[in-house]
């Protein structure tokens, strides 16, 4: 087990947040059992007050999840010289079985939390809490994810042994590796580029029509989700390579380092923002039904779609910059 300040910070923060999430979930479930919007009883008034507590807790949790994602990768990055064979976060995360799982769960938790906030925001726009049941039921999933994230993270840190020989980005993200990550790296560059830009253009096209005509939001949600995954594969396949200007270096983590002026952070953050709000757009559309939301949904749909589009555009700009403005050419 390793004991360093970052691990203490991450683990204690996660435990605290999990405790808060469970407390909020417990409150939410209690609200559901006694909820009666028609009543003006003292109990109902108290329950309505508690909805504020839940919203507040989870908006802080969302912020926490984002920070913890960044700090988690930072820590993995920082620890690489503790492991034989590790040169960056890729190696540290590979030092035991929990590293990558924890990372993936963290990203998914953040996105679910973001989508939950969008649902909550939508519900708050109507005067009769039309989504109170689905949204508090979604909290069960979210809280489980937060707990799972905490468990995996603690398991990962507790299970670290410095005498373990790990393999780093050179191997995990190489074309020869048989794993999922390896196959992402071995994707034929030109084809991946085509698929990536096609997906991006299609998403932007559908997005603009959602903004203008209000149609196709559900499709946009799906496209945004798919494009996020394709984009991650594209980062491994060629975007990172253009930043490193090394034909065989496919690491998704090294671009987070100082040597590449931390370009990975805006790259991934814009993608996370675009993906989360994009899926949120689709989810908002699917909430159509309650009469009290009829006026609100078009406004929110447009707003989240615009944010998502902005995110994808920023991502596309950062991703395309080295392809357009450096002499490096990647031939596959």
């Amino acid at each position: 087990m390793l004991l360093n300040p970052a691990i203490i910070a991450l683990n204690s923060g996660s435990l605290l947040v999990t405790a808060f999430a469970f407390y909020a979930l417990y409150t939410a479930l209690r609200i559901l059992t006694h909820w009666n919007i028609q009543s003006g009883s003292e109990l109902q008034l108290l329950l309505e007050k508690k909805t504020y507590l839940i919203s507040t807790v989870f908006s802080y949790v969302l912020g926490f999840e984002l920070f913890s994602l960044v700090l988690f990768i930072f820590t993995a990055e920082h620890m690489h010289d503790l492991f034989v064979g590790a040169m960056c976060a890729a190696g540290s995360l590979n030092a035991n079985d929990y590293g990558y799982v924890a990372l993936v769960v963290k990203i998914i938790t953040f996105m679910i939390c973001g989508v939950w906030m969008i649902v909550n925001h939508t519900d708050n726009q109507a005067h009769d809490y039309p989504l109170i049941r689905p949204k508090y039921k979604l909290l069960i999933l979210l809280t489980v994810m937060i707990a799972l994230d905490t468990i995996l993270q603690i398991k990962y840190f507790m299970g670290l042994r410095t005498d373990v020989i790990t393999s780093c980005c050179g191997i995990i993200f190489s074309g020869e590796s048989q794993s999922l990550t390896g196959s992402a790296a071995s994707l034929p560059t030109t084809a991946t580029m085509l698929v990536f830009y096609a997906a991006l253009l299609l998403t932007l096209r559908v997005g603009f029509s959602v903004v203008i005509t209000g149609r196709g939001a559900a499709l946009y949600g799906l496209l945004a989700g798919a494009t996020t995954i394709i984009s991650l594969a594209a980062v491994i396949s060629f975007i990172s390579v253009y930043y490193y200007q090394l034909p065989t270096h496919h690491c998704p983590f090294c671009i987070l380092q100082k040597d590449y002026s931390y370009i990975g952070y805006p790259l991934y953050l814009s993608l996370l923002l675009a993906g989360t709000t994009g899926m949120g757009t689709g989810v908002v559309e699917s909430l159509k039904g309650p009469k009290s939301l009829a006026k609100v949904i078009p406004i929110l749909r447009k707003r989240f779609c615009l944010i998502s589009l902005a995110g994808f555009l920023i991502f596309a700009l950062i991703a395309s910059y080295p392809i357009l403005f450096t002499d490096f050419v990647l031939n596959s």
């Binding site: 970052a6 203490i8 910070a9 204690s12 605290l16 920070f67 700090l71 930072f74 990055e77």
Partner: peptide, 14 residues
């Protein structure tokens, strides 16, 4: 930024 992030986590977050 890493150290600042740790400190932020240890103080501001809780």
């Amino acid at each position: 930024p890493y150290q600042l992030a740790i400190l932020f986590f240890l103080t501001v977050v809780p």
